[in-house]
Simulated assay, not measured.
Amino acid sequence: MASDKRNPLGPVGENVRRNVQRLREQQNLSLAQVSRRLDKIGRKIPPLGLSRIEAGERRVDADDLVALAAVLRVSVPALLLPHEDPGMPVSLASRMSVEWRTAWNWVRGETAVAASQDWVALLPWRATNQPYLNEKELKQQPFERPTQFSVEAWEEMKDDGPGS
């Protein structure tokens, strides 16, 4: 990946490109085969575009992400995060990282990543992030406490609420 790009891939973009390549190769699919699968579901990405995604030379937008997950037969989070625990915090943004398991719980809407998340606020947080659960199911689900996360800009983020 060229480091002089105006808008280089961030850590999650790097995960996506690596996971697309890993899954395509695991399934013994050529770039042309993945491209044909994408075309069949209405998301045209030519083999050259897929090659550029895997090389980190083309960004993946939200529609690409969903289509790639569908044709590679995985969930969207399976493209966003490392497949295996790297044994160190996972970067979610250039200045934000959490433990691998916490990252997975967060993308599944099971826990917040913010250490300052008010424990009382977790029920509405989960209701927003798991809209398929009814109120009874939400209350029955065990809560995993938010874990401390590493973020250099946390103090700056705290003041970015409405009206700031």
Rank of each mutant, 00 (worst) to 15 (best):
D85M: 07
S164C: 14
S116V: 06
V107Q: 12
E110D: 14
D63Y: 12
T128K: 13
A69D: 11
S51I: 00
R18F: 15
D63I: 01
L23G: 02
P47F: 06
L80E: 12
L80Q: 09
L48G: 08
P82T: 09
V12N: 05
Q130I: 01
S116E: 15
A115M: 05
Q140K: 13
L29R: 09
R101M: 09
R108L: 14
V16R: 03
R95I: 00
S94H: 07
P131M: 10
W100Q: 03
W106A: 13
Q21L: 14
A112W: 11
E110S: 10
Q140V: 00
P46H: 12
L122N: 13
L68D: 13
A2W: 07
A121G: 05
G87N: 12
F149D: 03
L50N: 05
A115T: 05
R52W: 13
A121Y: 06
R73G: 08
I45K: 08
V12D: 08
L50V: 09
R95W: 11
K40T: 02
V74R: 03
S94M: 04
A127T: 03
P47D: 03
T111S: 12
L79I: 03
R58H: 06
D4L: 05
V71P: 06
S91L: 04
R6W: 13
H83F: 06
L123T: 13
V16K: 05
F149W: 12
S116W: 15
K5F: 15
V151C: 15
T147S: 10
D63S: 10
V34M: 05
R58M: 05
N7Y: 15
E84S: 05
A121D: 15
K139Q: 14
V74S: 06
I53G: 02
G163W: 14
V76S: 02
P8W: 05
